[in-house]
Design a protein around this nucleic acid. Structure first.
Lengths: 243, 243
DNA sequence: GGGGAAACTTAACGGAGGTCAAGGTGGTTC
DNA sequence: GAACCACCTTGACCTCCGTTAAGTTTCCCC
């Protein structure tokens, strides 16, 4: 778990596997040293919460290992799973930069290791290296596109299409497509988390899964999914039943 | 319409009414001069499109006057109105910064004047003045919060609550609340555009309006709305009927 | 291994809201 | 003023999905 000898369960930014893919890759060695000195790492068990909606936002979290779910809930207690974040992703930078409290919560979905970088350090790095801000800006732009896409889908697509879309998104990271177009997928999410991702109840998730089984679109066994023909998922997206 | 003598219908950045509220307010006079020289302004009539989804994004648009609707549509032709943008807002900066084509479309809802600033100019200003990037970053962070809030609402709130929320948002800019808590509102949107904002069909918009009338929550006459007690709108938001 | 909690599934029911079709209203043009 | 058009409203119908309430399976933890 530990790479440097500095802290019991703390990685080292210079040797971090995810370094090349993160916003921080634009930092010079001197600047990275500042991050490395200032960060605090911790391991989280599944279900453990990294921060809650409404918490004071004191800095950013960078995922070293594991899988994190970002949730948001409303007054009535209803909850959606906005997205899942992976190693290399930096979390909480938006609330931090906007100067707000956290406006969603983060929870470990697998055993995960996160590094916390405090606000003062982030601010001085942003001042020191303008490229860092631009990287975050680009990232925010992409997140925003994804969020607007999700608004559109939630408002206009029926549940089957939203679920097909979710499977297609998960395919990119968790799936294998073979030569004849069949897909095998190992889901990183529980049924209820999948339901929360597409904005439906667990009961509807079960029904949708069964209707996919009945239509021979996909076969589910625990978290293993087999899709005989990926094309059939794309066809689901096209179904013109509007809002 | 024209302030400088430079171009027939082109304003002047130095005297622009919206200047203080925009991202561009961090620019020095020299830098603003670059914007002013490089920009191209144009008037758009209601219904006229500024850019389409999928168009090549060559720069950003800054709204000098008027009201612009930002729309996004899916393969099936269903459309949502993601937000409305006002004088001082800069549009298209996200697609531009992410290096993508436009991923939504912009259409004038009122007679409007927009200034176009080409990509080369924006890039050189970002390089010249890091504070500009940070301002855009903060703006993107706020937009992202709004978009995620909208995902949550669309997925978990019934139509009445979403409509009550829309009226409360429009209240901030277009409404007047008097001493005894009653609200008068002049809607900037047609019924079908309001429907597109909360992700429903025009028929459902009509039905929802009528149910608000029946319950004495709000009274509609064309684009004039009278709400006897603003509290009743807040109460609509709380209704626990979940998704 | 056994017991309990959480996750998942299934079925029956009902209501919110989409669809379709028809009619009303208002604004613009000749 | 007539004709046209877009926008809006209304009603009838029906489907999708939330609700409720069992029941089943899985997974921990003693």
């Amino acid at each position: 778990m530990s790479v440097s000898g500095k802290s019991s369960d703390c990685g080292n930014c210079f040797t971090c596997q995810t370094r090349g893919k993160t916003e921080w890759c634009v930092l010079s060695d001197d600047e990275l040293e500042i991050v490395d000195q200032g960060k605090v790492c911790r391991e989280y068990m599944p279900g453990e919460v990294i921060f809650h909606e409404g918490d004071d936002c004191r800095g950013v979290h960078c995922i070293e290992r594991g899988l994190i779910g970002v949730r948001k809930m409303n007054a009535g207690g209803n909850e959606v799973l906005l997205r899942i974040s992976h190693p290399g992703d930096t979390m909480g930078y938006r609330s931090f930069l906007a100067g707000d409290d956290h406006n969603n919560s983060a929870e470990a979905l697998e055993p995960s290791v996160l590094c916390f970088i405090d606000g003062k350090t982030v601010h001085s790095l942003l001042a020191m290296n303008p490229a860092l801000g631009l990287r975050f800006l680009r990232h925010a732009a992409q997140d925003l596109n994804a969020a607007e896409e999700k608004v559109l889908q939630t408002a206009t697509l029926p549940v089957r299409a939203r679920f097909a879309h979710l499977l297609l998104v998960l395919k990119e990271r968790y799936g294998v497509v073979d030569d004849n177009g069949s897909l095998d997928l190992e889901l990183p999410l529980s049924r209820q988390d999948m339901a929360a991702m597409i904005g439906i109840r667990p009961e509807s998730m079960s029904r949708t899964i069964r209707s996919f089984e009945d239509d021979n679109i996909a076969h589910f066994s625990g978290r293993r999914v087999h899709v005989p023909d990926v094309k059939s998922l794309y066809e689901e997206l096209e179904i013109p039943i509007g809002l």
